[in-house]
């Protein structure tokens, strides 16, 4: 369960989030949708305790991320890149992360297998392609077998097989009762994966609800999105 309550954030004197409020529930895939610069990454960074909001609270299972003792056992997060230092091998990276939360070394090879990187375990992270980095980042998120997944643009950089795999992985995770929150600007992708949709634009939540409710009278999620964010189709998109 993720609860974001009236988060406001100002960066470089510009307010980038305005009282952002929403929930992501267990057993469901929640899609966090918005155009570039809308505030998706900023919101997720606050949720993960990386940045501080000016006001408001972001809770995971009722607690602030900073207050979780071995957080990887509760939350798996994927942001930009893999988080692995370029000089480290994939396995070495995963092993220190595992150790930090009291997990055994053997978890490293297990999650490498899950994301299909077994053959690259001894390769340095600096040599990884974009898609491989994303997979390594996801492997890191899965180390503690968490009940909550927070993923920023998870399919970014993945090949078609990887995208399909990710979609099934997220659906399975939710089916097993996990809370899955993912940001994206790929509407077609989200329409196939998400149960609930939250749309953010210019730092404000413009609509949230079940996928069908958000689509409403529109033909597709994409139509609804353009209507809601007042971005002309054929404009910058």
């Amino acid at each position: 369960m993720i609860t974001i309550d009236r988060i406001s954030k100002t960066k470089s004197r510009t307010q980038i989030l305005h009282e952002v409020t929403f929930e992501a529930r267990p057993g469901r895939v929640t899609g966090f949708l918005g155009p570039n610069g809308a505030g998706k990454t900023s919101t997720l960074r606050i949720l993960l305790g990386l940045d501080r909001p000016q006001s408001g609270t972001a809770l995971i299972c009722g607690r602030r991320y900073q207050k979780l003792d071995r957080p990887l056992l509760t939350v798996g997060a994927l942001l930009d890149g893999s988080g692995a230092h370029r000089a480290r091998t994939a396995r070495a990276h995963l092993r220190w992360v595992a150790a930090s939360n009291g997990l055994p070394d053997s978890r490293a090879d297990e999650v490498l297998e899950v994301v299909g990187l077994t053959g690259d375990a001894r390769k340095r992270a600096g040599r990884f392609s974009l898609g491989m980095s994303r997979r390594l980042g996801l492997a890191t998120a899965l180390l503690g077998d968490p009940a909550v997944l927070v993923l920023d643009e998870p399919v970014n950089g993945l090949d078609p097989a990887g995208i399909r795999w990710m979609r099934e992985f997220l659906r399975d995770s939710a089916a097993q009762g996990r809370t899955v929150l993912l940001s994206s600007h790929l509407m077609g992708e989200l329409a196939e994966t998400a149960d609930d949709v939250i749309v953010i634009d210019k730092g404000r939540i413009v609509i949230q609800g079940g996928l069908a409710d958000v689509i409403g009278d529109h033909r597709t999620l994409e139509d609804a999105f353009f209507e809601l964010t007042a971005t002309e189709a054929g404009g910058p998109w």
Partner: peptide, 25 residues
């Protein structure tokens, strides 16, 4: 080492993100 960029794909990405995700205190 926490602040060096982890790759050209994501210039803002650093090991510090993984570090603080693991030990947020």
């Amino acid at each position: 080492s926490e602040y060096t960029s982890t790759g050209q794909d994501a210039p803002g990405a650093r090991q510090l993100t993984a570090t603080l995700a693991a030990v947020p205190d």
